[in-house]
Nucleic acid binder design. Structure first.
Lengths: 335, 335
DNA sequence: TGTGTCAATGTTAAGGTTTACATTGGCTAA
DNA sequence: TTAGCCAATGTAAACCTTAACATTGACACA
């Protein structure tokens, strides 16, 4: 291992001068600087990041907890996180939790052990174990999309899910639909409650019933979409419009509807959520709500880094704009 | 910051005993152990990972260079990497390079600065800058899917792209196709050459021409698939079967073909590569080659970690099995 | 009793870097 | 000439943990 001491000997200066040459060159005379840089090159020296980090007490690293790596929506968020982190001189540790609390605990504890300076949670759970909870009190943590379930309010970057769902509902009402269903993904989350409330509020205003039987789900997957449709088609009153709580579910739903010999949107309209890339290119292209995933990731990093730097929190909640994307998977209700 | 010294004072023992209690408890008497653990709890102490890492000289971290985070195939690989890394006590630093050499250099240099112990490259370039190249000589590095372009042969986990392409070609020949085209994604990569060679070898055996004009591409994206089809449909001799070098391209190709008023597979057969999740659920479901992405990621970590541990390299190249997945996007050639 | 052994614990150096403080020496201004 | 200043550099402590080596003391056995 070539270390700073070896370089200092090679250049005939002290280790402090080597350090200064690399970190604050203006404090070193030109002649010495050149001498040192030459020695650095000759020795093939690269400063040991671990050593400087232990000195500063900062790892300049953030850990991101993702429930599901293969979800393209999350990946767009992470793309934004990665980009912004890099710009700010941070690196990103990936924490694929698969929704497992044990894994969440493990990754979250990295912030307690100086392995990371802060964390971004993409799921809705409070990621620390009960044992760590009190230590986690004032740690930099930000959530994206979901709100972290805890007494203390951590900053959150989110969408107005209530309004977005209302927009989808109005869109479908405009097509004359009267029989609705929802395939909701993960129950027990903030998102679930808000979106459902948004839909309910619109239907109530129009005095359209929306029964429990019409609400199904379990996960944000294509399979859940297929299973949801199979369930819905077995009901006595078939819905003419289905809210899917993300685009993967919607893709599964469209697939299952077509497989059952029905048409989208002629027989059943399907709307999704997230606007993932592929949604525009399936048949029929998906009506959905666009979330600015990349920007949400970027913003999360900005908020997190300012927390890490100890700057006062401006807003504990930021709501980013959504956009209703009307495509061909939704259309007039059948007569 | 509560450190080990504070705990040692609280417990009335030396720092060494605290360290031993946590790292090798069998060396400490039961009574002391309990005393120390109580103090640890009372102080809310968590060992500083940076400090122990600088001591050991190991960060137990690997950095993964990904050209494109949103590609679900890469994400499956990374899922495998993440899982295996966690099992082996490593964490994963994410390096979203967007194909930019500057970013590759930056992430790769993390291995030189003790920020990471090894790296996994998902692209085909040698990720170190020219200045770092000689330092990078013997660093732990593994590539997945693509082979790293350098004199020194780094271990690679890959697929038999040649054989897989031959399988696809035979599949299409079996349907009576005679006019082929390919939308190839990134040119200049190993994958490109091998897959093309595989297709060419089969067509040559059957004395079927395969002209340069029929080969198009540029990126592994849906848009490239669309652009590719638009180009191919403008040619005097329209192909009846299109090889797409990944499923995203194939999804774009199917979309564009349908948009042009043609049918898949009745007018044109389309085959993809990778078998991403959504490929089974688009219309028509995609004929493709399944790559064991998750296992490739896992295996890459195993090889990398054994390199990090200084174990001798068993094989510098591991070829994992592919599987031809025949679905409805390919069918008999039109008359 | 004395010696040897061993488990338990303490002391301290080491890991590589940064930085507060100290030193050097050249220069200016009175 | 000399005090004073300042830029350049050096010295050594600090960051926190770990581990090699040292010490202690209890116990066994001759």
């Amino acid at each position: 291992m070539t270390n700073i001491k070896k370089v200092s000997e090679l250049a005939g200066v002290s280790t402090a001068t080597v350090s200064r040459t690399l970190k604050s060159p203006d404090q070193v005379s030109l002649a010495t600087r050149e001498k040192v840089l030459e020695a650095v090159k000759a020795a093939g020296y690269r400063p040991n990041w671990l050593a400087s980090s232990v000195k500063s007490g900062r790892s300049n690293t953030i850990v991101v907890l993702v429930p599901n790596l293969v979800n393209p929506f999350f990946m767009r968020i992470i793309g934004g996180i990665e980009q912004a982190a890099q710009e700010k001189g941070f690196s990103v540790l990936l924490g694929d939790t698969q929704g497992s609390p044990a894994r969440e605990h493990e990754y979250a504890s990295m912030v307690l052990t100086n392995r990371a300076d802060g964390l971004i949670q993409l799921d809705h759970s409070f990621p620390f174990s009960a044992a760590d909870a009190d230590l986690a009190e004032d740690l930099p943590m930000v959530s994206v999309c979901e709100r972290i379930a805890s007494e203390k309010k951590y900053p959150v970057i989110e969408l107005d899910n209530y309004a977005a769902s209302r927009a989808l509902a109005h869109h479908l009402l405009g097509y004359g639909h009267k029989h609705f269903a929802a395939i909701v993904g993960q129950v027990s989350s903030q998102i679930y409650r808000e979106r459902l409330a948004g839909i309910r509020s619109v239907l109530q205003e129009e005095q359209i019933p929306f029964e429990q039987a019409q609400i199904t789900g379990g996960a944000y997957t294509i399979e859940a979409g297929i299973a949801g449709v199979e369930h819905l088609l077995s009901l006595p009153q078939r819905p003419t419009a289905i809210f899917c709580f993300n685009d993967d579910i919607a893709i599964g739903a469209v697939h299952a509807i077509k497989k059952a010999g029905l048409r989208v949107p002629e027989d059943i309209s399907v709307v999704g959520f997230d606007n993932i890339k592929v949604s525009a290119f399936i048949d029929p292209p998906l009506t959905t709500v666009d979330q600015p995933a990349y920007d949400m990731g970027r913003r999360a990093v900005e908020v997190l880094v300012s927390q890490i730097r100890g700057e006062p929190l401006v807003r504990s909640k930021e709501v980013l704009p959504f956009q209703l994307i009307e495509r061909e998977s939704s259309g007039p209700a059948p007569l």
